[in-house]
Amino acid sequence: MKSNPFIHFIREVHGKFQTSVFGTAQGGQNSQQIAFLRQLQREMKAEEVMSVPLEEFSAVVFDIETTGFFPEQGNEIISIGAVKVKGGEMLEDERFYTLVRHENGLPDEISTLTGITEAELERAPALEEALIQFFKFVKGDTLVAHHSAHEKKFMQHASWKHFRAPFKHRIVDTSFLQRIAEPHTDFVRLEDLCEHRSIPVTDRHHALGDAVMTAKLWCGYIEDVKKEGCRNLRDIYERIAAG
């Protein structure tokens, strides 16, 4: 695998990993890339995200489409979609989407579900390149996902497989806010929650479409939990812990 100008980016964000995986990083990083990496390192070192006021809280809401549920059994990420939010507002122009080239075949049922074709994936970037671009988009922001165990599992697996490093970004689950904003609702599926909240269900099972719907859900919940007296993430976690 040839050297990548973002090797140092991965090393600093995710911790040291074995240079034998990538080889020794070569020169060629321009000043703009170096400035980006230094800024990212400063942002990732910030430990006060728990106390940031919710109206100022920046996050990247994301979703992935996969060929199954078990990365350890060979299921793969085939697309990543994301949108940035600040406080209770979605930043419409701050969006990310990429298909991901896969190593195994694309099951027919997944192609039908997502609308993604084998031919599209053959032209897509490899997962390690897609992840680098995704991390560049995210920078130091907190990640948000709907019932995030799926995303977290695949991200952890991919980070270790391709970079030999743990996945260190914080992921906040929308269900945390749901338990405070609507403690008596038992909806689980994204489309059911969106319909319940009068959020249009569009582009379901498209990574960017699902990310946008999740972002709208998140923004609504941010306003609701603020009305319940939560000022920041620490308040949210403490409220949940208290039952």
Rank of each mutant, 00 (worst) to 15 (best):
61 V>Q: 05
70 F>I: 12
52 V>K: 14
82 A>V: 03
61 V>P: 04
117 T>V: 05
69 F>Q: 11
101 R>L: 07
81 G>A: 03
78 I>W: 08
75 N>P: 02
131 L>N: 00
90 M>Q: 14
118 E>R: 08
56 E>D: 15
61 V>F: 01
109 E>D: 14
155 M>L: 15
90 M>W: 13
56 E>W: 06
49 V>L: 14
66 T>E: 01
152 K>N: 14
79 S>C: 05
152 K>A: 12
56 E>N: 15
101 R>I: 05
137 F>P: 04
107 P>V: 01
89 E>Q: 15
70 F>R: 15
153 K>P: 10
161 K>H: 12
49 V>M: 14
49 V>Q: 14
156 Q>E: 12
77 I>P: 05
153 K>E: 14
125 P>K: 08
142 T>D: 09
102 H>P: 12
127 L>R: 02
99 L>A: 11
116 I>V: 01
112 T>K: 06
82 A>H: 04
164 R>E: 15
61 V>T: 00
58 S>R: 12
132 I>S: 09
142 T>Q: 06
158 A>F: 07
107 P>I: 01
60 V>D: 00
113 L>Q: 01
113 L>Y: 03
148 S>N: 11
94 E>Y: 11
100 V>F: 07
80 I>M: 10
74 G>P: 06
54 L>E: 06
85 V>Q: 11
71 P>K: 09
150 H>E: 09
98 T>K: 13
103 E>W: 11
64 I>K: 05
131 L>M: 10
87 G>F: 02
100 V>G: 11
140 G>K: 09
130 A>Q: 06
68 G>S: 00
77 I>A: 03
161 K>N: 12
153 K>I: 02
129 E>C: 11
146 H>I: 07
95 R>Y: 00
147 H>S: 12
53 P>C: 01
56 E>P: 12
101 R>D: 08
95 R>H: 07
123 R>T: 06
48 E>L: 14
156 Q>T: 10
138 V>L: 08
137 F>I: 09
141 D>M: 07
147 H>K: 10
167 F>H: 04
63 D>G: 10
97 Y>P: 05
47 E>A: 12
88 G>K: 14
50 M>P: 04
106 L>T: 02
84 K>L: 03
93 D>W: 08
57 F>N: 13
80 I>T: 11
60 V>N: 09
155 M>I: 09
134 F>V: 03
83 V>P: 04
72 E>Q: 11
